[in-house]
C-alpha cells in the first residue's frame, strides 16, 4: 500500500501548472502506482478563511474513495473548535495548518492552542515547512518558511501532539530530531518529498541516523511531479520491508 500524505487539489496563486482537480490527481496516482492520497486544498491556503475550502476536499473524498481529506484549521479564527469537531466527525486522518500563510505566529499562542486541541482530539497536525523553493518564489510571496525552532516548540507544546511534517530538508529534520527528546521525536513523521537522494544521499543518511520509522511517502503534487519521490526510493539500497514502511506502513502505525 503506497500512501501519499502530501497532495493537493486546487490552484496556486503564484504560478500556473497542469492538474489540480481530484480527477487529475487520481490519474497521476494511477501512473505512479500510488494507492491512496491525503488531500489538502491548495487554493484555500491563501484565503482569509482557509476552512472555507474544506467542503471541497470532503466532497472529493466522498467521490474518490482513494482520497482522504486533510481539512485546514485556522487557529486564529472563531470557528476553530467547530472545524476541528467536524474533522473528527468526518474521520479525517489529520488536519493541517499553514500559519505563515495565515499570518499567524508559527509557534505562538494560537498554534499552541491548536496542538493541544489536536492532541485532545487524537488528530495529528500536518505542517508544511514550505510549498515552493525559496529561490523561485513570487516577489509578493513573502511568507516565512517554518523553522526547526518552530517545530521544536510545537512538538514540545503538548506531550501528546503528533506532527506530520512535509517539505522538510535534511538540515531541518536533523535540527528538530536531534533537538528533541526521543519521546518528542517519536511523535513526528516526516515526508520524503524534499530530501535529496544521490550523490548527496541525504535520504539514505537520515534513514540511518534518524531511523526508517520516522519517514513516510509524500510527493507534493500537483506543485511537484510525483516521479521524484519514487525515483529517490528506487535509488536507495533498502530492504523491501523497510521500503514498504516508508510507503505506508509507518504512517498506518503512527496514525493509529
Amino acid at each position: 500500500m503506497r500512501i501519499d500524505v502530501n497532495t493537493f487539489v486546487g490552484r496556486y496563486p503564484f504560478r500556473k501548472f497542469p492538474g489540480g482537480s481530484p480527477q487529475s490527481l487520481s490519474e497521476a496516482m494511477d501512473r505512479n502506482g500510488i494507492d491512496r492520497a491525503w488531500i489538502s486544498n491548495l487554493s484555500a491556503v491563501f484565503w482569509k478563511d482557509p476552512t472555507e475550502g474544506n467542503s471541497v476536499i470532503y466532497l472529493a473524498a466522498v467521490q474518490h474513495s482513494r482520497l482522504r481529506p486533510v481539512p485546514a484549521v485556522h487557529p486564529g479564527l472563531p470557528n476553530r473548535e467547530a472545524v476541528l469537531s467536524e474533522a473528527v466527525r468526518r474521520k479525517a486522518p489529520c488536519v493541517r495548518a499553514d500559519p505563515s500563510f495565515y499570518g499567524v505566529d508559527p509557534s505562538g499562542s494560537e498554534m499552541r492552542w491548536l496542538t493541544k486541541a489536536c492532541a485532545s482530539a487524537g488528530l495529528p497536525l500536518l505542517l508544511a515547512v514550505r510549498l515552493e523553493d525559496g529561490r523561485q518564489r513570487h516577489p509578493n510571496d513573502r511568507s516565512a518558511e517554518l523553522t526547526p525552532a518552530n517545530l521544536r516548540e510545537l512538538v514540545r507544546s503538548d506531550p501528546k501532539v503528533r506532527l506530520l511534517v512535509t517539505h522538510a530538508d535534511r538540515e531541518c529534520i536533523e535540527q528538530v530530531h536531534f533537538g528533541s527528546t526521543p519521546e518528542e521525536a517519536a511523535r513526528i513523521l516526516w515526508d520524503i518529498c524534499w530530501i535529496w537522494g544521490p550523490p548527496e544521499d541525504h535520504l539514505a543518511l537520515l534513514l540511518d541516523t534518524v531511523g526508517v520509522q520516522r519517514f513516510t511517502f509524500g510527493t507534493g503534487m500537483p506543485l511537484r511531479i510525483p516521479e521524484n519521490s519514487l525515483a529517490k526510493l528506487d535509488l536507495l539500497d533498502i530492504a523491501p520491508h523497510d521500503r514498504k514502511r516508508i510507503e505506508g506502513g509507518n504512517l498506518e502505525k503512527w496514525a493509529s
Binding site: W196, G197, P198, P199, E200, I225, E227, N228, L230, A231, K232, D234, L235
Partner: peptide
C-alpha cells in the same frame, strides 16, 4: 547536477 533523483524523475515524467 547534484540531485540525481530529480533528473531521473524528469526523465520518467
Amino acid at each position: 547536477d547534484i540531485t540525481m533523483e530529480t533528473g531521473w524523475a524528469k526523465l520518467r515524467h
